[in-house]
Design a protein around this nucleic acid. Structure first.
Lengths: 140, 140
DNA sequence: TTTTAAACGATAATAATTCTCTTATAATAA
DNA sequence: TTATTATAAGAGAATTATTATCGTTTAAAA
């Protein structure tokens, strides 16, 4: 994704455009595998060696608040981030830290219909995410 | 749940039975709302004032390893634990830390059938969990 | 170009969790 | 029942991810 395109995202959210913010958002999008803050720092330092860890955390917070990125739920104590903000599901590998995206409109419609029919009492659903847990199998 | 019943669970998993382990497992089951380590310490200290925080963490780890409890995925940096090990779903309140269990066999069957038909390439599914995110609404 | 509110960077502080090491105890054998 | 031994518990230090502080810099509006 071009820097200009990323600037636009920031401007749309009324965030001040800085080289750090562009680099961080770009990193999350390019590293497209739910990076940690540390992964992001490491990636950015290649072109931007002086960026501070504190800045990365602050920018990540700002991006989450503006809904340009999302936090990913895990059962580890390291936060991970997701550049895909459209509702989608996650495949969790049960013997590594790999998390893959899973998109399936047929499934989304199925779920939507299901919960229209069978409401949860006193609860307004905002989003439904699947965590698909399992293992990648070697083929051949 | 009676202490005896809890002892049996530990023995079945070949874990040494100690008052601390019984108290911790009992706490998780009684506190049935996905407590944090801190919640557990607080609860246990009422009857067991000298228990060490380190012990609680060590026991929690052992219980997770033996699959007597599970970690709950959240997007906060505080770990939460779940005494219900049977596969089930979670309702996350989007404006508090509340996490409720959600059980629905019809839904499970629906999902099972769906993924039987539509396999994920090179992936063996072990479990599917829904995260239902939304808000509780006040009635009346 | 000037102004200024906001962001950055460095480092200290915090908080959850893990580690280390000594003492205590549950389970097993005698 | 008592002795033995491996394992667990307790206390506090250490670690690690994240957050806060504060002086300096900078983006963007005037």
């Amino acid at each position: 994704m071009k820097a200009e395109e990323i600037s636009r995202k920031l401007i749309d959210k009324k965030l001040k455009v800085t080289p750090q913010r562009i680099a961080i958002l770009e990193a999350i999008i390019n590293l497209n595998n739910h990076p940690t803050a540390e992964n992001i720092v490491e990636y950015i330092r290649k072109n931007h060696p002086n960026i501070s860890v504190a800045t990365v955390y602050k920018v990540l917070d700002a991006l989450v608040d503006s809904r340009l990125i999302k936090k990913v739920k895990t059962e580890r104590d390291i936060m991970r981030y997701d550049g895909v903000v459209e509702s989608h599901h996650h495949i969790y590998c049960s013997d590594s830290d790999r998390i893959e995206d899973f998109n399936d409109n047929e499934l989304n419609e199925l779920l939507e219909k299901y919960f229209e029919k069978k409401k949860i009492p006193d609860f307004k659903i905002e989003d439904i995410k699947l965590q698909i847990i399992g293992k990648y199998i070697k083929t051949k």
